Computed example of a mutant assay.
Amino acid sequence: MSKQVKVGIVGGAGYTAGELIRLLLHHPHVEIGTVVSSTQVGQPLHSVHDDLVGDTDLTFASELRGDEDVVFLCLGHGNSREWLLKTPLPPRTKVIDLSNDFRLAADQKAGGREFVYGLPELNRAAIRTADSVANPGCFASAIQLALLPLAAAGLLREAVHVSAITGSTGAGRGLAETTGFTWRTGNISTYKTFTHQHLGEIGETLVGLQPGFGQPVRFIPYRGNFTRGIFASVYTTCELSVLEVQNLYSDYYRAAPFTVVAEQEIHLKQVVNTNKCLLHVVRHDDQVLITSALDNLLKGASGQAVQNMNLLFGLEETTGLGIKASYF
């Protein structure tokens, strides 16, 4: 591709925006034009994202230039819709939203746009032709990737049980007691048990793949005493043998460049700082257990957003995302 994709980022001071900038600065087909922040206008990007020192001299702006090919919205939940309605963009400008404002089917129309749910392993063809994409939630990505093959085969019969832990960056950059070092270190806790906001998008996906599925997804999220990553354990009743279910998963993800079905048990260090989701599938009695691990800021947010951008502009899906795990 000869033409560079001109990018604008709105809400540029948060964690997801920082990771997005880091990825896009090294993307061979991208030009970052403007990074908008209402609180940091005129300040260099590296004054907030200090891992970018030496990588860019860009400063935060108060508004977009208007010539963007794609705009990433990295605003807080509930703010993207309001911003889009107040700031109409040219029809040719594509939008990728990283909040939860447009993920549910009832919410996917706004400002003359119609958002496609941006989980590539589910909606790759629709993403390619979309004008706007709703990036999935981080927990939702990990849990759905653990369940897509079963739902697509119509094999979900009973309730699905999920226990998943996330790092402190999942709570965003804003200060709160439960995100501070002294609270998190040596500590663990549950939150939003059975009520987490990502259950809505998970439920819609499962019913879309397996119409009539009406069993609950019983989800217990944990706050972890580490900074980034999600590790989820998902189990439900399954009639297949262990070999059959492993083959089902391997076949389903054969063409998915970032979702890998591992033969051995997985752990979090294998995925931190990558756009991978690793899955491991085993069977215990009549239960299939799928463990799922990803980086909440990359495959769970900014990396997946870049993956969606690549699909929108006809680029190789993996472009700019060949990054190695921070293993040691």
Rank of each mutant, 00 (worst) to 15 (best):
R124E: 12
I127K: 05
R128L: 06
T129C: 02
A130Y: 03
A130G: 04
V133F: 01
P136F: 04
S141F: 03
L150M: 12
R157H: 12
A159R: 12
V160Y: 02
V160G: 01
H161F: 15
S163K: 14
S168V: 14
R173T: 09
A176N: 00
E177Q: 14
T179M: 00
G180P: 03
W183I: 05
G186W: 09
N187P: 09
N187E: 02
N187I: 02
S189G: 14
Y191I: 01
Y191L: 02
Y191H: 14
T193P: 00
H196R: 11
Q197C: 11
H198T: 10
G200F: 07
E201G: 03
G203A: 12
G203R: 14
G203T: 13
T205E: 01
L206C: 01
G208C: 06
G208Q: 05
L209Q: 02
L209V: 03
Q210A: 04
P211I: 11
P211N: 09
P211C: 07
F213G: 05
Q215I: 04
Q215V: 05
P216S: 09
P221Q: 01
R223H: 13
N225V: 02
G229H: 07
I230H: 06
Y235P: 01
T236M: 11
C238A: 11
L240W: 10
V242A: 14
L243F: 08
Q246D: 09
N247R: 14
N247D: 15
N247L: 14
L248M: 13
R254K: 15
R254Q: 13
T259M: 09
V260L: 12
V261D: 02
V261R: 10
E263M: 08
E263P: 10
